[in-house]
Amino acid sequence: MSHSTFTRRSALKGLGLAAAASATPRFLSAMALKPSPIRLGIASYTFREFKQPQQLVDFMHQLNLKNINLKDFHLPMGPLDEVKKNADWYRSQGLVITGGGTIYFQKDEDEDIKAKFDYAKAAGFPIIIGSPSHAALERVASFVKKYDIKLAIHNHGPEDKEWPSPQDILAKIGNLDKRVGFCVDVGHTMRAGKDVPETIKEVGSRLYCIHMKDLAEKDKKESQVAVGEGIMPVKQIFETLVKIKYPGCVDLEYEINGKDPMPGVTKSIATERKVLEEMGYSA
């Protein structure tokens, strides 16, 4: 595994960003904060322009985060012993791999699906963030049973002909194994015209992942901004997740400013931590 090193300039920049991320105001300083039931994390697609594993680890350390949902350009598919070795390296750096994806299952064929589940098993993914075609859905669900790896189907908004909204997923998976569930992308859910907190209640116990983002306009993909700068009801979302006792992660998926993501990512994580503090939780 190739590990790049940062320049002194970028390292200093990272330290400054990390300080900003941890400088959340202590609104409840007079009270003891409870451990947060919500775990914050990152979808590694956020750092898609930075393919070297060491870069990803450095970003996570700067943000003081450990939960990571790995995309395949950060953990490539290949020989299974190499997949395991590379996944174990991330863990040795203090990261917790909470899932992998998005992984697409376009072919209704055992061979194709098995290869992707073998990859997930070698990596130690407890959850596959996935997008199966309608035709492949039942076959993919059979592999969920065989491998005992959850499948969280990711909605991708109005442009997605398969899964525009979580409600479209719900209509197809009701009779499938309960380990087939949801990755609710809050931005794409809003753009599909759905109320995000109500959607979270609707999917309930089959919610296995949240992809967090924010929008300045509810129906425009191009209006994405740092979390806290738009109209996403972050506090209501967190309150709903606590109410349903959601056990998973809230993974920031920051899809803008790919070549310089850290300012927006840092602001987003700081906003999430601030909201949790206002709710009485440490983050």
Score class of each variant (00 low, 15 high):
Cys209Arg: 13
Ser165Gly: 10
Val196Lys: 04
Lys194His: 11
Val250Asp: 03
Asp148Ala: 07
Lys220Leu: 11
Asp160Leu: 07
Glu217Pro: 03
Pro263Glu: 07
Glu202Ala: 15
Thr199Trp: 00
Glu229Val: 02
Leu137His: 05
Ile169Tyr: 04
Thr46Asp: 07
Gly14Ile: 00
Gly130Gln: 05
Gly100His: 04
Lys267Tyr: 05
His74Asp: 04
Gln55Pro: 00
Lys51Thr: 14
Pro53Ala: 06
Glu278Arg: 12
Arg39Gly: 01
Tyr147Met: 01
Met279Cys: 11
Asn64Val: 03
Tyr281Ile: 00
Ser205Arg: 13
Lys66Ser: 12
Leu137Met: 15
Ile169Glu: 12
Glu82Met: 15
Val83Met: 07
Leu207Arg: 07
Glu109Arg: 14
Asn86His: 11
Glu49Val: 03
Asp214Ile: 05
Asp108Ile: 04
His3Pro: 05
Val180Trp: 02
Leu15Lys: 11
Ile128Lys: 07
Cys209Thr: 08
Ser44Phe: 00
Ala120Glu: 01
Glu229Ile: 00
Phe50Leu: 02
Tyr254Pro: 01
Arg191Lys: 15
Gly187Pro: 03
Phe117Leu: 11
Lys145Thr: 14
Phe125Ala: 06
Ile173His: 00
Leu215His: 08
Asp88Lys: 05
Met232Arg: 02
Ser29Thr: 15
His188Thr: 07
Pro25Trp: 00
His3Ser: 08
Val140Asp: 06
Met77Val: 12
Ala30Gln: 15
Gly157Met: 02
Gly258Ser: 12
